[in-house]
Amino acid sequence: MKQFAALLRKDNQPVRYLVVDDSVFARKNLIKMIEMFGGEVAGEAGDGLTAIAEFNRITPDIVLMDITMPQMEGIEAVERIVRQHASARIVMVSSVGYQENILAALQKGAKHFVQKPVKPEVLYEILRYVLSDDPNAVGSPVAFAGEHRS
């Protein structure tokens, strides 16, 4: 199995994730990857409404958000979260990856998109990019375990 340098916050604490997917199976897969990247799963949700509540409760560093879910779909959840938390960093994770979906998610405030099945190395690079994207956000720029920054 490929080894990844841990993605850490600026305070050297693990990056905290909220994993949102109606499939327990898909959540387990993402959680396995998060652990490979040295992260911490702060919360899970199976629909958009629960995701909003969980975001408010745990304020994660990163949200991994599915699109097609019961009760409230991922794109609407993104819009509502970003309306309240402009600096929220949300990465869409969906098997449906056509242009309209991606554009809609980005327009609502998602930072990136990754198509299922998720390759760990692809997700890792996206997380690395998204975590270092906003120099004013808590924990940015991201530090990698073993790296020295001057």
């Binding site: 499939s23 327990v24 199976f25 898909a26 097609t68 969906s94 098997s95 449906v96 990856g97 056509y98 242009q99 309209e100 198509q115 299922k116 099945p117």
Partner: peptide, 20 residues
Amino acid sequence: ETVCEMANMVIGNSVTLLND
């Protein structure tokens, strides 16, 4: 769960190709 998620991924990837 396994069958559902594999089906979701197959269909999602297919409709992406067709939608494009």
